[in-house]
Design a protein around this nucleic acid. Structure first.
Lengths: 172, 172
DNA sequence: CGGATTCACTTAACATGTTAAGTATTTCCG
DNA sequence: CGGAAATACTTAACATGTTAAGTGAATCCG
């Protein structure tokens, strides 16, 4: 097994047709997607062993660091859309990994927090998670990793402002 | 609107509980996820105008550059899993954007190619797609973009070999 | 006060991601 | 030749991504 990137079908012999365009495999979205997938492939097995998906793990991690949070705030922190979060919270609550109670001052808001069981589960996963992260850091190089994260942050930032401009154009 | 990263709830006042761990928002998977999302957010509206999802667009692009391909080959090129690709091809075929015919030498294989309509659709989307890519390049800087892609490629590469090792360990 | 808005979610609906199982075909090999 | 194993998909099942619509509670204002 273990397919290498050296397969004949992807050779350079495929002439561009009508639309030149950047070589597909080198587009930025593809690069980001593949890099992320390569990283997550390292983590998924460990999470799976504990019955957690990547997103559930994100939520638990977020909750563990901020004590309690409203759903909207949690969505922003864990970078999930509302509907996804709604479903996942329902499931995590059913598994007793989180707790919810509606805020007293505002009945619309619901405060989410990690449960004792949730903390315990986190504690059991964290070591392997950290080990995997450490291995990635070692393989790729700590300095390069920091550089990469820096660049990713800049990319995000300079595209975020592009959206703000769109909002201005919207008020026609 | 246009929420800035400066919200009080994420302040530095939240003491770590029991599991220190890296600050959540700075984990590599999150950085990659957010960067990619920032990029795709630029493209999605244009694709949507033409009734295409990101994945459908990936497939059309891949097909346009390689003439005809087997499903497995296409999956590798467009970086999609088999089941996803199966569904999408079914839909694209129903919309007459692609064509399929089983290979003569091997009845299991099916050769996929882009249809005349598919080419036409691509031609109508490509300009705005290229324009968006150009704007991203300008905002972020062409040189930095190249550097970023280089690093992403390296990351992918050095993690790919990690899997090969796992396979060796599997044969117990 | 009270209807219109806004807000904080939740549901719904459809598309994809992910893993496992199923199907048909081909190849291996005894 | 013929059954076991491998191959190339496809289906199934469940979880998430994404957009739109729905619901109940708070707020704005007239």
């Amino acid at each position: 097994m273990a397919k290498r990137p050296a397969d004949p079908t992807n050779g350079s012999a495929t002439a561009a047709r009508q639309v030149p365009m950047r070589d597909f495999s080198r587009s930025l979205p593809m690069s980001l997607l593949r890099a992320r997938e390569a990283v997550m492939r390292q983590f998924r097995p460990a999470l799976r062993e504990h019955g957690l998906t990547e997103q559930q793990w994100r939520i638990l991690r977020a909750l563990a660091s901020i004590e309690a949070a409203e759903v909207t705030e949690l969505a922003r922190t864990a970078f999930l859309l509302g509907p996804s979060l709604s479903r996942i919270l329902r499931d995590l609550e059913a598994r007793n990994l989180i707790e919810r109670k509606t805020a007293k001052t505002d009945q619309r808001r619901s405060m989410v927090s990690i449960s004792k069981e949730g903390v315990k589960l986190m504690a059991s996963v964290a070591p392997s998670s950290e080990a995997i992260y450490a291995e990635i850091t070692e393989r790729f190089g700590a300095r390069k990793l920091a550089e990469l994260q820096e660049m990713l942050g800049e990319l995000e930032f300079c595209l975020a402002s592009a959206n703000a401009r769109d909002e201005v154009t919207d008020d026609a």
